[in-house]
Write a protein that binds this DNA or RNA. Structure first.
Lengths: 190, 190
DNA sequence: TCCAATTCCTAGCGCTGCTAGATATGTGAG
DNA sequence: CTCACATATCTAGCAGCGCTAGGAATTGGA
């Protein structure tokens, strides 16, 4: 069985290589540039090998998104932990969220606009996704009072998501971004 | 020149047929199902004819989106006009916005998530888009006081857009939609 | 009636995600 | 050490995509 474990180790490493290649390529050139042929060339295997690891391209994107959820949760946690006071925590978490989305647009797309099916039904994604959501909720909690915390958090999240996506698709001027973000934070921290 | 006008009339009619076919197909089966071959078959012409009317598939989607902007503006105007009082106007306009997006998901996608380039740089889109935006602004205005009306309106719009897109991609539970919408309206009408 | 211009179609290019069938590789038994 | 089996991998190809070049058909004017 020693050989079996070595093989499994190599398989796992190759799977990581696929995800890493997909992520790098998506961040560099966008998801349209991520083709199964280019991925196969990158990991120096033939195309069908990809399909022994993932069901299809969507599943590869979902795997990349999973990494993103963990990173976003960490980024939000860091922002909240270092904030001076509850009101500032809302602003800092919001800023961290937007920064994350701006700096890793392809990753954000995989998480929140593409690859609908897979990640939200699997096992480990809800964990990291819940972590990120909990950070938002914890930031909003001190201000929410006795109101519906979940609804407030989800709505706040929607506001951030809307700002990010509309700005990135050219519907909102980038120059006014700070003012809009300030409005959102203000409306959700009083 | 009489013949020329007849030809031009036929051309315009065919262009309308292309847009109508694209819209119907997108609403029925989503934009992925809208292929140039299916469109050509639908209007009973060959594929290259499409390219004598539009630069490419994106341009066809943009043309469909243009129709959407006009319809959205009308829907928002109707909602605002029939509202009882300024606070109710915000709620009604928000509800109308969400209803529009929910009932015509493919149309909404063409307008706000796909087809980035073309519509926002052309001539007639800004008109209808501005009309829709003005309806949102007029609804928010009585409440905004002396604050930055444009920033508030854009942020409110982002909130609506975020709610719609996150819910439709399965990131938010549909059951809690009314509560979230109420939160958003509440936060932007006090 | 004949020519020229316009309109339209056939055929095809390079690409996509994905898969069936053949081939190479590595393992365990005799 | 050899051989047969099982596993892993590759080559080749399918059907579809957006898009376009070049030739055929239709139309309008002289």
């Amino acid at each position: 069985m020693a050989t079996g474990t070595r093989r499994e180790r190599e398989r796992a490493e190759r799977e990581r290589a696929i995800i890493a290649a997909a992520r790098a390529l998506a961040l560099a050139e966008g998801w349209d540039a991520v083709t199964t042929r280019r991925l196969a060339a990158q990991i120096e295997y033939s195309q069908p090998v990809l399909y022994s690891h993932f069901k299809g391209k969507d599943a590869i994107m979902a795997a990349v998104a999973v990494e993103g959820f963990a990173e976003l949760a960490t980024a939000l946690a860091t922002a909240r932990a270092s904030a001076a006071g509850p009101r500032q925590a809302v602003a800092d978490v919001a800023a961290a969220y937007v920064t994350f989305a701006e700096q890793r647009p392809a990753l954000y797309d995989a998480m929140f606009t593409l690859a609908v099916d897979l990640p939200f039904a699997s096992q480990d994604v809800p964990t990291d996704l819940a972590r990120g959501f909990a950070e938002l909720a914890d930031a909003v909690r001190p201000i929410a009072g006795d109101d519906d915390l979940e609804a407030i958090t989800e709505t706040f999240w929607s506001g951030l998501h809307g700002l990010v996506t509309l700005m990135r698709s050219g519907r909102l001027r980038r120059a006014d971004h700070d003012r809009r973000l300030a409005v959102l934070v203000d409306r959700f921290s009083r």
